[in-house]
Nucleic acid binder design. Sequence first.
DNA 1: GGTAGTAGGTACTTTTAGGTGACTATGGAT
DNA 2: ATCCATAGTCACCTAAAAGTACCTACTACC
Lengths: 131, 131
Amino acid sequence: MDKNLVIPGSEPCDDDACAVRDALLIIGGKWKSIIMHTVHNQGTIRFNQLKKSLPDISQKMLTQQLRELERDGLIKRVDHEEMPPRVEYSLTDLGISAGSVYKTINIWQKEYLKTINNNRKNYDESKTDQG
Amino acid sequence: MDKNLVIPGSEPCDDDACAVRDALLIIGGKWKSIIMHTVHNQGTIRFNQLKKSLPDISQKMLTQQLRELERDGLIKRVDHEEMPPRVEYSLTDLGISAGSVYKTINIWQKEYLKTINNNRKNYDESKTDQG
DNA sequence: GGTAGTAGGTACTTTTAGGTGACTATGGAT
DNA sequence: ATCCATAGTCACCTAAAAGTACCTACTACC
């Protein structure tokens, strides 16, 4: 087995936690990838526009995820302090860099989705066949 | 903004779900990255060896995660059917390919961790300063 | 003065992920 | 007979993530 092929650093974990684990707290979760994707596609996007683009997300979750993305510096929030309110979201440079990670994940998934689904089917069959 | 720089495919979601979201169900979660990392490092590893390498994981979670990784075809499980039991785990080719995804995530995290932590600090301060 | 649009916030509930501790089967050693 | 090691399973519980429904502030418009 070639040790140079794969996976993270050299220690199993830095201190307690894994870098990958930490990264997934920042870019993972149910909504962040699609929010990031939508903001990127639009360049600049307002709150309600975003909400309409993501019909299944609740207002609360959208706000919450945007706050986290803003806190971590992946997204920039500009409040124009007008009435009626106008708030615009866009990606920061860090957000754009995270985009390349999403892209890698996406490519991997697209490439191996069928394989994985076949594996699952075979696994299930082997379990129902002979427990 | 350069549309060619970043993020997944061209639609926000394939059907309901995102490819990235689906991928993270396969390779994400609290334990999978470190399990994969450990198995890779050892080449072949037995259950209890793995448990000792990951002192914080419970036996139940280890079994459960290994079953999912096996089901999805990232990990191969070989039961030698001896007594006392001897079961050996190793990565499949698909598992190795997932390693490159973990690697990308890991590199990104290592590169931007400080930036993210600074962003969080500044964000918190701006919130406590003036709400 | 009632309604609509904007960008949220709050309280409560459900669902999912993860954790704890005791238990099983097997055979060999003490 | 009892204990040990291996590789688990089972029932139960907590904590975190996500969802639902309703509320706020401000202004314009009718």
